[in-house]
Structure formats: structure tokens, C-alpha cells
Simulated scan of single mutants.
Amino acid sequence: MNEQLLAARGLHVEYGLPGGRTAQAVCGVDIDVAPGEIVALAGESGCGKTTLARTLLGLERPTKGTVTMAGRPLGATNRELREFRRRAQLVLQDPTGALNPRHTVYEAIAEGLRIHGLHDNEHERVAQALAHVGLRPPERYLLSYPHELSGGQRQRVVIAGCLVLDPEIIIADEPVASLDASVRGEVLALLMRLRDDFGLGALVVTHDLGLAWSIADRIAVMYLGRIVEQGPVEQILTAPQHPYTSALVSVLPNSPVGEPQVLVGEAPDATRIPGGCRFSPRCPVLASGAADTAGIGAACRTIDLPILTRTDDDVAKVACHYAHATVHS
């Protein structure tokens, strides 16, 4: 896909900490979402997924790099950000926390229209948004309060609040993590239907590769602030090239990579990024001696890998010295 809806290039996000330390939450990321495409952003907790998502929405200011919407750089003025946020909407993990308990469903959904000055046909737009997310008939829910709804219904109301503004892309941060297993499938099916019916692009932040496999067209796997592997979801999850991705895939039911792989230790602190490959302190390939046997052990420990960029042919790409060595050997 040549037409990119939302894109980031060379994105860095750093935070100053006491003692003169700097936390590198996002350390050089290229990522994009095309119209009608669902991209999963996956990785363990603390890897920078949510910070990246917030930066793509203009909620965090990048230290370096650019974010563009339909080829235009993300503006910095309140007017420019307001217009951008009408086109790009956020779905939060906890629908209960996202809804004001004092507001009815109607008020919750209409709030976005009022913020953006879209007063025409307000009641009709709210009712249509509810119908689009499967809450029918809409009149049954308009005067309900969040505590009167189930978890799945609350998440649908949150999504309706996004749809009422006719966005072009949705960024969903762990959209089903707080829901019962019985309703997760319904909400995921809803996101896929919205993609098919309205051509919405979506970036779904998740730690669950099973979820990514179910709904995504492409996946970007993130580790310690950097995307280490990205490409078509089926290609990545059936034949992962990066040892980190392989370890994540190994714990899925009926995993294609064999026995579950347990990574040693915790992810390093974002204030102390390791030299060379940032996964090297936990890499089972390096620990087993396979990287040294292949002649690239020193590179793994000392040479950083370039930022992964998406190619037009949509071939999977990986930031791993060993994977590159074995492909070209």
C-alpha cells in the first residue's frame, strides 16, 4: 500500500528524570497505517507501546521525528490538533474509566460533537453511531448511565463516541483487556466490521499475540522502545525471525515454533539501553553460543541495528544480526 493514512518516521520520545537521567521510551520508530488496514502493535508491558500510541495522537510531543496524517505533518496549535483528533480517535483500555458516570450514553457520545462544534443533526448522529456499534434500537440506550450497562456495552459506547465524529483512523489501546472472555470476540468482530464497512484504519496496541493474529493485517513487534520485527501478521506469527518474537509466539496454543521459550530476566531499564542489539542481554541465540558460531556474536553485543521501515512489497522485516546472517549464509 503506497497511500499511508497515519505515519511516523524516526520517532523518539525521551523523558528527563531526577539525577540527570533520561528515559528513552521510544528510540527511533517508523510505523504507518493505511486506510482500511488494521495494524497490531505488540510487545510486553513497558516496551513503549502506549507512549508511541499517545505520540501518534499528539498527546505526547516527540523529542525527535515526525508524525504525519495523509502526508501532512501533525500541527502544534490547538486548532490543528483539534482537527487532527477528530480524524484520529482513541479507544481506551478501560471503558468504565473512559465514561463519566454522571453522563448518560447520549451525553457521552454527543460530547465529541459539541467539542468540535458539530451541532447539526446531533440526535440523529448519536443514534446512528449507536446502531453502527450494534446497540439497537438506539433509543433503548440513549438515557442509560454507564453503571446500567455491561462491560461489552460500555466499550461499544466508547467506540460509538469515536465513530460519531466520522474518523479515518482509530487507535485502540488494549481494547478488550478489561472485558470478559465471552465478550472480547464480539468487540474484536466489531472493529473488523468497522474496518470493512467504513474503510477505517486501526492501530491496535496489545500484548496478546492471539488477538493480533485474529484481527490484524500487519503486526509490529516492539521491544525496549524499538520495533524489532514487522510485516504481514500471518508471516510474522507463523515464521518469526527475531528471537524475541519467537519467544512470544512460542507460548501461543498450537504454536508453530515448538516448545514454549522462557526468556531470562526482565527487560532492561529504559534509562540504560544496552549497547548493540537491545535484546542481547536476554537473547537465547546469543546465550546458547549460536550467534558466536555464526560469527556475529560481537556484532550483537556492539552494533546497533537500523530502524525498520515498511517496504512497498510488504515483506516482513527484522532487526536481528543473527536473522540477517542466517538468511544470507
Rank of each mutant, 00 (worst) to 15 (best):
73 P>Q: 03
179 L>N: 02
4 Q>R: 15
289 G>W: 09
260 P>H: 10
164 V>D: 05
273 I>G: 00
161 G>L: 04
310 R>I: 13
7 A>Y: 00
135 L>S: 04
136 R>P: 00
224 L>E: 03
142 L>F: 04
111 E>T: 11
234 E>H: 14
201 G>M: 04
317 K>M: 13
60 E>K: 13
119 H>E: 14
306 P>D: 09
51 T>S: 15
43 G>M: 06
49 K>F: 05
141 Y>C: 03
287 A>M: 10
161 G>K: 08
91 V>C: 06
328 H>R: 15
236 I>Q: 04
37 E>P: 05
107 E>T: 12
45 S>G: 11
306 P>K: 10
10 G>Y: 01
285 V>F: 01
325 A>F: 02
263 L>V: 11
304 D>K: 14
231 G>Y: 07
50 T>R: 03
99 L>W: 03
169 I>F: 01
158 V>Y: 11
38 I>F: 02
119 H>K: 14
190 L>Y: 05
67 V>Q: 11
168 E>Q: 15
151 G>F: 06
199 G>C: 09
160 A>K: 08
200 L>F: 09
181 A>H: 00
137 P>L: 10
130 L>P: 03
98 A>L: 07
190 L>T: 02
150 S>P: 04
21 R>Q: 15
179 L>K: 04
108 A>D: 03
99 L>F: 08
189 A>W: 00
51 T>C: 09
240 P>F: 05
52 L>H: 09
107 E>H: 13
180 D>R: 02
77 T>D: 13
239 A>Q: 14
205 V>W: 11
